[in-house]
C-alpha cells in the first residue's frame, strides 16, 4: 500500500510496494475415494508488485495446484489468500469470474486457445467478458497482438500457427484485460529452447513494464530468467531467494 507518513518534522515518503499476492498457511488435499493426497502443506509467501517469480519443484510437487489456487481456478482447503489486498474466500462464482477477468491473466502450458477462433478473436475474448464494444475490443486486442509481434497473424486460426506463436497469442490474451498479475503454468513446457527464449523475452519485457508475473517451471534456465525462485518440495517451500536475472538476448526491443 502506498501511504504517506506525516510526522511533525520534515516530510518524507516511505514507498512500500503493494503486496499483490499474500498467502498464509495454505493447504490443499485431493480426495479420491478412501485416499487423500495432501499436496500443499502450509504454504506462506508474498509477491509484491513488479516481481517476476519462478516456482520450481519436481513433477508432482504441487506447483500447478498452487498456481491454480492463486488463479482462482481452484480453492484451497485451508489458509488465507489476499489478491491485491482483497480476501479471496467463499466468493460467489459471479464475483470469482469478475476477479479472474479483472485481476488475473493465465497462460497455460498447452496454450488453451479456442480452436475455431482467430488469434485476434482469442485475444479479444477477455474483453468481451468485460462487456467492451466490438470495435474497441478488436482495436485493443490488435495492440496486444502487435506487442507480441503477431499483428500479421491476427486472422489466423491457432492450428495455422506454430507452438511459439500460439503461446504468444495466449500471452497477449492474458495481458489484454490488463490484469494485476500474470500467472503462467510451464509456459515454455511445450516449446523448444529457441521459442522458449522468445516467450521468456516477451515475459521479461512485460515485467520490465511493471507487471507482476509468476511462472511455474521445472527448467533451470527458464527459472533463472526470473528475479526470484521459490522451490517447492513435498508441499512446502524449501527455498525462496532473489537471484540475478539472466536477460534474454535483445530483450529490449520486442
Amino acid at each position: 500500500m502506498n501511504f504517506t507518513k506525516e510526522s511533525g518534522k520534515p516530510r518524507y515518503f516511505v514507498i512500500e510496494l503493494i503486496k499483490m499476492i499474500e498467502i498464509k498457511d495454505l493447504h490443499k488435499s485431493y480426495v479420491m475415494g478412501e485416499n487423500s493426497l495432501h499436496v500443499l502443506k502450509g504454504i506462506d509467501f508474498t509477491v509484491k508488485e513488479g516481481e517476476l517469480v519462478a516456482i520450481m519443484g519436481s513433477s508432482g510437487s504441487g506447483k500447478s495446484t498452487l498456481l491454480n489456487i492463486l488463479g482462482m481456478l481452484d480453492e484451497a482447503d485451508k489458509g488465507s489468500y489476499y489478491l491485491d489486498g482483497k480476501p479471496i474466500k467463499n466468493l460467489s462464482e459471479k464475483i470469482a469470474a469478475r476477479y479472474r477477468n479483472k485481476f488475473l491473466g493465465f497462460v497455460f502450458q498447452s496454450f488453451n486457445l479456442i480452436t475455431y477462433k482467430s488469434a485476434l478473436e482469442n485475444v479479444a475474448m477477455p474483453l468481451y467478458y468485460q462487456g467492451m464494444k466490438r470495435n474497441e475490443r478488436n482495436k485493443k486486442a490488435m495492440r496486444y497482438l502487435e506487442k507480441v509481434g503477431l499483428a500479421d497473424w491476427a486472422t489466423h486460426l491457432p492450428n495455422e500457427l506454430s507452438g511459439g506463436q500460439n503461446q504468444r497469442v495466449a500471452i497477449a490474451r492474458a495481458l489484454a484485460s490488463e490484469p494485476k498479475v500474470l500467472l503462467a503454468d510451464e509456459p515454455t513446457g511445450a516449446l523448444d529452447s529457441t521459442t522458449s527464449y522468445e516467450v521468456m523475452r516477451i515475459i521479461q519485457s512485460i515485467n520490465d513494464e511493471g507487471k507482476t508475473i509468476l511462472i511455474v517451471t521445472h527448467e533451470d534456465d527458464i527459472a533463472h530468467m526470473c528475479k526470484r525462485i521459490v522451490n517447492l518440495r513435498d508441499g512446502v517451500i524449501i527455498k525462496d531467494s532473489k537471484i540475478n536475472q539472466v536477460r534474454t538476448k535483445s530483450a529490449t526491443h520486442v
Partner: peptide
C-alpha cells in the same frame, strides 16, 4: 474444456 477456458478468462456462470 472450452467452457473451462472461457471461465478462466472471466465468463460468468450466466
Amino acid at each position: 474444456k472450452e467452457i473451462g477456458i472461457r471461465r478462466a478468462l472471466g465468463a460468468t456462470p450466466w
